[in-house]
């Protein structure tokens, strides 16, 4: 997960506009800050650095049975 580049209000506006989502006034800057903080917090998990190449999202359902 790459978070080295800062999110900007312009990037957020462009991404949402591409999906035809209109932002409420004044929201783009707050959203950019929120994205930055959220993705940095998520990327800070040391488990991510050790995530195996073969790990797939559906592996979770198998783990639920294995861990019961």
């Amino acid at each position: 997960m790459t978070t080295s580049k800062q999110w900007s209000a312009e990037v957020v506006e462009t991404l949402l506009a591409a999906q035809a989502i209109a932002l409420a006034p004044g929201r783009a800057e707050r959203l950019a800050r929120a994205y930055q903080a959220l993705l940095e917090a998520s990327a800070a998990d040391p488990l991510l650095a050790r995530l195996e190449f073969d790990a797939v999202p559906t592996g979770f359902a198998l783990a639920m049975q294995k861990c019961r």
């Binding site: 957020v12 949402l16 959203l31 994205y35 592996g59 979770f60 783990a63």
Partner: peptide
């Protein structure tokens, strides 16, 4: 505002977090 926040989550980040779920549970 909460819903607006989801439209710029990168798809790769979303899927990476789902891939990590198994290891986190274990």
């Amino acid at each position: 505002a909460r819903l607006e926040a989801g439209y710029a989550i990168p798809a790769a980040s979303y899927l990476e977090v789902l891939r990590l779920r198994r290891a986190a549970l274990e």
